[in-house]
Nucleic acid binder design. Structure first.
Length: 263
DNA sequence: TGACTTGTTCAAAT
DNA sequence: GATTTGAACAAGTC
C-alpha cells in the first residue's frame, strides 16, 4: 500500500517521464474523488499546460504546473501511475488520463477509488488548511518527541495519524515498532525520551532505506513485519510468535514476547 | 459466501 | 477547543 516511500517512487516516476511536455488533452473519469475544483475547470487548467516540477508531503504528491498552481494526487490504497505509448497495453479503467503532445499517455488509475485528485493554489495553504503534520522524513528529533509525548493514544495510532506527522501508514508503523521493541498498543504519552529517540531513528532509517530502493519491498526483507504480515510467524529476535490485533482500526502484527507494552 | 484489507474523513464522545 | 474513537467508503483476495 502506498506509504511515504511509494509516493516518493511516484514522484520520481513523474520526474523521469512526464516533465516539460505540453499536454494535448486531459480526460477525467466520473469520480467523487475530485476535490476543491470541478472536472471542467481542472481539464481547462491542464490542457495546454506542462508539468514543471514535483513535490511530496507525506503521502501527497504535488505536480507544479507551468501555468497556475499544482495538480495534487493521493494514491489511497490502490493508486498507480502509468506512462505509455497509445498502442502499449495500459489499464482500461482510470481516473485521469493526460495525453502529451508527443503522443504518450499519463494515466492515474485507482481500482478501489480511495485516491484523491485536487488542484491547489499553494502547497503550504493546502497542508495548513487540512491540518497535516510535518513530513516524516523532514521532521527533526525535538519536534517529533514534543508531538508524541502529549498524545494519549496507542503509539501505533499516533504514528499513523497524518495530522501529527505525515507519511507513515499501517505497514511501516508495525515495522518501526518491531525494530524498537515497543508494543504497538503502548500509550504514546507513557514512553520515555530514549524510546522516542529510538522510534525516531528507526523511522528515518526504514523510510530512507525504502526510498533508496525505490520502495521495493523485496529489498527490505531484513525489516521484519514489513512484507510478512500474518499471525503465528516465528519472531527473528526471540522465541515468540507474532500476534494479530486490530489497533486504531487497522490490522497490527507484533511479537508480544519482545515488544513490551507501556501503559 | 463472506470476512478481511487499506487511508482518510467525519461525527460523536470525552 | 482539543483529542479520541470508530464507522464508513470500494473492491479485490482468499
Amino acid at each position: 500500500m502506498p506509504e511515504l516511500p511509494e509516493v516518493e517512487r511516484f514522484k520520481n516516476f513523474v520526474d523521469r517521464t512526464s516533465l516539460h511536455q505540453k499536454i494535448a488533452f486531459a480526460k477525467l473519469a466520473e469520480t467523487d474523488r475530485l476535490f476543491d475544483i470541478s472536472a471542467k475547470d481542472l481539464i481547462h487548467i491542464l490542457e495546454g499546460n506542462e508539468f514543471e516540477d514535483t513535490y511530496r508531503h507525506g503521502k501527497f504528491l504535488f505536480i507544479r504546473l507551468k501555468r497556475k498552481g499544482y495538480l495534487m494526487l493521493h494514491f489511497g490504497m490502490t493508486g498507480e501511475l502509468y506512462y505509455r505509448d497509445p498502442d502499449e497495453k495500459s489499464p482500461k479503467v482510470y481516473v485521469l488520463l493526460i495525453r502529451f503532445e508527443n503522443g504518450r499517455n499519463f494515466l492515474f488509475a485507482d481500482s478501489r477509488g480511495f485516491g484523491m485528485i485536487a488542484w491547489v493554489h499553494s502547497i503550504e495553504e493546502f497542508i495548513k488548511k487540512r491540518g497535516y503534520g510535518e513530513d516524516a522524513l523532514l521532521i527533526d528529533q525535538d519536534s517529533f518527541i514534543r508531538l508524541f509525548r502529549k498524545r494519549r493514544v496507542a503509539i501505533k495510532t499516533a504514528l499513523m495519524n497524518q495530522n501529527i506527522i505525515a507519511g507513515i501508514g499501517n505497514e511501516f508503523s508495525d515495522a518501526i515498532l518491531f525494530q524498537t521493541k515497543i508494543h504497538p498498543l503502548s500509550n504514546s504519552g507513557k514512553l520515555t525520551i530514549d524510546q522516542f529517540t529510538d522510534i525516531f531513528h528507526a523511522m528515518k532509517k526504514i523510510l530512507k532505506e525504502s526510498v533508496s530502493h525505490d520502495a521495493d519491498r523485496n529489498k527490505l526483507n531484513h525489516y521484519f513485519l514489513l512484507n510478512q504480515r500474518q499471525a503465528g510467524l516465528a519472531c527473528p529476535r526471540c522465541e515468540g510468535k507474532t500476534e494479530w490485533q486490530t489497533i486504531g482500526g487497522r490490522s497490527s502484527y507484533f511479537c508480544p514476547s519482545c515488544q513490551k507494552s507501556y501503559q
